[in-house]
């Protein structure tokens, strides 16, 4: 079974701030991590390989430093990894990103299954997985919490708002996974040594047959016109007193504001 997993290196979003004077992102000193949902996708791919045999190929599109993210997946046990990196990709939105990743997958993997995290924690769009599926004209199943592969089809349990839905999908397909699907493994010492020594293959737009008129900013229908810090809520009022007093005071305030 050939599995492709798309990952993204993201800043640890808890640390990202806006410079209020320039309204630009402050990236200095912010650690980079593998998008947590993508770690779950890698873990799921490794588990499926352990069960069904085959190969796990990791693909990321990003700047040269994304090699570190790929190395982490080698340490976890991935068979092959590729960095897709080109100046032509700069400024890609989800439309152009899904196109580029679809080109790379098509070129590099005889895929039975493509796994992605449900969304990246920086952009939070959840659009790239379905986008890849559309470019490759294969089915998508989003928000997976359980995947069982049986020959040329998979049974997938999806985590929805109020219910779980079980669907059957023929392979190949794109499946995006949620956090609850598994607990990503800690890389072994052997894995880490292997990752350290690994040479990471870097491919350009041309290498993956991506049409450069529709990659990067040129190929992106959307434009970010402004970024700004969210309005600060600021600490409110601390209600003090005995249990009875605080409860009375709170309910009174909520009633005055017609909330309860």
């Amino acid at each position: 079974m050939e599995i492709a997993v798309c990952i993204k290196q993201v800043p640890d979003t808890a640390e990202v701030r806006i410079n209020p004077e320039t309204n630009t992102l402050i990236r200095e000193g912010v650690p980079s991590i593998v998008n947590p949902f993508d770690e779950n996708a890698v873990e799921e791919a490794l588990r499926l390989r352990e069960k069904h045999g085959g190969k796990v190929t990791i693909i990321t599109m990003g700047p040269p430093q994304a090699i570190e993210a790929l190395k982490q997946t080698i340490a976890m046990g991935a068979d092959e990894v590729y960095l897709i990196s080109d100046r032509a990709f700069a400024g890609s939105d989800t439309w152009a990103t899904s196109y580029t990743l679809a080109c790379a997958i098509k070129k590099l993997v005889a895929y039975d299954l493509i796994l992605c995290g449900k969304q990246a924690i920086d952009g939070d769009t959840a659009q790239v997985g379905p986008g890849i599926a559309e470019w490759l004209s294969i089915p998508q199943v989003t928000f997976a919490v359980k995947i069982e592969v049986d020959g040329k089809k998979a049974k997938v349990e999806r985590l929805l708002e109020e219910v779980n839905e079980i669907v059957e999908v023929p392979l190949p397909a794109v499946i995006t996974v949620v956090k609850q699907i598994n607990e990503p493994r800690i890389p072994s010492l052997k894995g880490m040594l292997k990752a350290k020594k690994a040479e990471i293959k870097t491919l350009s737009a041309q290498d993956v047959d991506a049409d450069q008129t529709i990659t990067g900013l040129k190929g992106s229908p959307t434009r970010v016109v402004k970024i700004f810090a969210p309005p600060v809520k600021g600490g409110g009022e601390i209600i003090e007193g005995s249990t009875d007093e605080v409860v009375s005071s709170l309910t009174q305030k909520l009633r005055e504001r017609k909330i309860i």
Partner: peptide, 14 residues
């Protein structure tokens, strides 16, 4: 919102 709600972005499709 983006970056876990730390940032707001305004986006257009011109």
């Amino acid at each position: 919102p983006a970056f876990g709600g730390n940032i707001m972005a305004t986006i257009i499709s011109p």
